[in-house]
């Protein structure tokens, strides 16, 4: 089990690094575009790079973001009940989370296969949509694994403060 949790963490971190690299490429591209445009030579379609670069940045930072605690929780009540009940509620909500993202990952897979067939692609550079759909599917699959790791921790009672 430990090696499973470890592997998830490594993959999530790798996705997060990719998303950071894409973000820095977006910074550079925009900077160069602004300079060139003011000399009369804009990079045509730079918006599309930023737009779909953003898609990679956002989707690849989902699972590691969750590990870093990027999901907003209303803890008004949950922090005030007794640890035993809190643990049970936590286990239930983790299971719900896993189901949600497995379901989303599956539907993105279907969507990816579908847009591959319909041939939808970006307007400027004609990049097909389907790799983005598959990337999203993979990220959300990792997201559900990440929540699963959290569940294991909760079941073991690691955070029984």
């Amino acid at each position: 089990m430990k090696s499973f949790t470890g592997a998830i963490a490594v993959i999530n971190k790798a996705l997060y690094v990719i998303s950071g690299i894409v973000l820095s490429c977006m910074v550079m591209l925009t900077f160069i575009d602004v300079i060139l445009r003011n000399f009369g030579h804009p990079i045509t379609g730079s918006m599309e790079f930023i737009q779909y670069g953003g898609c990679i940045v956002f989707s690849f930072s989902v699972p590691f973001g969750t590990m870093l605690g990027a999901q907003v929780i209303v803890d008004l009540i949950i922090e005030r009940i007794n640890p035993r009940k809190k643990r049970i509620i936590n286990i239930i909500t983790r299971c719900v989370g896993i189901m949600i993202f497995l379901f989303i990952a599956y539907n993105f897979l279907i969507y990816g296969i579908d847009v591959r067939k319909t041939g939808e692609r970006t307007a400027s550079f004609k990049i097909p949509y389907y790799p983005f759909a598959f990337a999203l599917s993979f990220s959300f699959l990792m997201q559900s694994f990440t929540i699963f790791c959290d569940l294991i921790k909760k079941v073991k009672g690691a955070d029984n403060e």
């Binding site: 030579h41 045509t44 730079s46 918006m47 599309e48 400027s124």
Partner: peptide
């Protein structure tokens, strides 16, 4: 482009 101008895409 065909008119010799530079296209800029934005929302």
């Amino acid at each position: 482009k065909a008119l010799g101008a530079s296209p800029v895409t934005m929302p």
